[in-house]
Design a protein around this nucleic acid. Structure first.
Lengths: 150, 150
DNA sequence: GCTAGATACTTAACACTGTTAACGATCTGG
DNA sequence: CCAGATCGTTAACAGTGTTAAGTATCTAGC
């Protein structure tokens, strides 16, 4: 896997080269991870929404739409599918216009297994590096996540 | 942005923590990058296929299907759409069963602009780090890409 | 306390992408 | 030369996205 050249119009410096390499590396990391998701038997959209429910807790349809960056009708339909599969349930709040969604135990288990598979796949790839390089990778990744939301 | 805890069932060590942090960081890097793609006016699938054509050169329908990990009919339909938009063209080889696809100049320009936007977005986020940290990020990302295909 | 407007969700109609099955055209080996 | 393999397209269907319209509920103002 080699890194593509910087496109024309971008200054060539550490910053742009870091962005370029980080871009490529991220694509490759997630390509592998996504392969693990197919074993869940869920479509990517359903698994993604269910993951939000598991890690963020019960949320209204509108909140889920904002988080996923899609429309409320799109969420509503996916929730219906998750409910049919016994992976999530609809609930109500004081405001009777709102509909909350929460993952079932089975939904939670499915998401956790998927996350474990993803991380195991990535970890297996990292095994090729030395302990010292793995520490560097960890330090940089944690730094990226610590500072802001890059 | 904080890193989620390691899931149960995964040993807690540098390797798994590196995988966990790298996973989160990759998700965030690409979330930003994808936002830049909307400006292209193309659907993600069309832009992705067009990118392959630009960076890998002319390819047959079957080869594109293998690269994108989807079926030949799916590629065929997207190529038809790209052709209609003047972004790609179909061609022929000696083997008259095969159909090759190649990006037009306009398609190439569109992909290059998109890639520039992506990298500029990522670079802008990295500007928050010190020069020394940026060098570390670059070194790790290039290492990840150099060794294999993580 | 009532009503007008805002808000939250659902349903409907349509576009795009993915699949598999079936078909036509072309190549290849015996 | 022909039977079978290969390549691409078309068709039919499922899933997800959108916007528009409809229903129910809340809230503000009189």
């Amino acid at each position: 896997m080699s890194i593509p050249p910087l496109p024309d119009g971008l200054e060539d410096n550490d910053l742009t080269r870091a962005a370029n390499a980080l871009h490529s590396a991220s694509i490759h990391v997630l390509r592998r991870a996504r392969a693990a998701d197919r074993e869940s038997g869920l479509t990517p959209e359903r698994l993604s929404l269910l993951s939000v429910l598991v890690y963020a807790g019960a949320r209204t349809i509108g909140a889920l739409a904002a988080i996923e960056g899609v429309s409320a009708p799109a969420i509503s339909r996916i929730v219906t599918a998750l409910e049919a599969g016994g992976l999530a349930r609809r609930g109500r709040t004081k405001d009777a216009r709102e509909v909350t969604v929460i993952a079932t135990a089975r939904g939670r288990r499915l998401v956790e297994e998927g996350r474990r598979r993803r991380l195991m796949l990535i970890a297996r790839e990292l095994e090729r590096f030395t302990r010292s390089d793995i520490q560097k990778i960890r330090a940089v990744a944690e730094m990226l996540e610590r500072r802001d939301g890059v």
